[in-house]
Design a protein around this nucleic acid. Sequence first.
DNA 1: ATGTCC
Length: 378
Amino acid sequence: MGNSIQQPSAGITLITTPELWLEGEAIKQLHTTATLPDISYAAAMPDIHPGRGYPVGAAFFTTQLIYPALIGGDIGCGMSLWQTSLKTHAMNQAKLIKQLGNLDQPLSASECTSLWPDIQPLQQHNYASGTIGGGNHFAELQMLDTIYVAEIAEQIGLNKQHLQLMVHSGSRGLGGAILDKHIRQFGHQGLIADSEAGKSYLTQHNQALAYAQQNRELIARRILTNLRAQGQKLADISHNFIEAACIHGESGWLHRKGAAPATQGLVVIPGSRGDYSYLVQPLDTPTALYSLAHGAGRKWQRSACKGRLSRRYTVEQLSRTVHGSRVICADRELIYEEAPQAYKSIDSVITAMVQAELIRPIARFKPVITYKVKTEKK
DNA sequence: ATGTCC
């Protein structure tokens, strides 16, 4: 424990270490958000960074009100992990990239059902189903680097001889449409959860949560199909959502904004596209509002990246990482914004959570191929 | 974040 938990003011917990850089603006947003009506507890994860008015990488607890704007537009955004049948030792990176093909076009409901008859498409909303999206979203083939707890790795079916697949994506346009409509009517104010409007939002929010989960499933299935591989889903956890929860004996609403739940089994915490990713076991503690970091966290603002990197690195250089992995990213702006240099080291984030006794690492993976976007912009 | 804005 020791210095990894800070309580700068009543009700606010920071999971950090002296070595970790926390951006001042993010801490400012944390305090501003924590003082909104009915927010009784806040917890900042070690990957906290500034967002649009609210910090990304934090959890907030209320007893009566819900704050849709705090969750933001990508309701249900999350991470999934699959064990694939692709042999690690026989891996041919160039061939895999070729086989992956282009995943940028949405899949229609009929394409989905003919490819995977066991999936029931949630087709009341077709918002770019089966596509990854932009920003920090990605799909990534990985190889097992280190197993820390062999018993659990074996139990869930992690296999070092075969590649893993990670998917980071969300509800695409659906969550944004729900938030837009909500904001036009109610602005950023908190809404009584039990009111008609509150219940209506939560119903739509839950649909977006399900849609995001299905979208990750479709992305993974699509990749496995293209690679002529089999796969088994090992985890799927959202890090952008509201849920009913009981905190310090009080029942209410837990808002996670870029924070993974510590209450739904094993959690994947991805590093940057040039860094390791971890599978961790959450420990049962209310210290950080039953929440964990959702990634490495940005170190540089998106707008600062190109200026800092374009004179030192070409786009071609950024498409290869220190792990020898390849990043498929035809968007020449995005590849700078998503460069590993723009993110904290994942080890610093994991260390903070280990020291705070929030997690136990189970396994570590390194990237092989990252898919962001293949289609060049016109 | 965006069947996104330039």
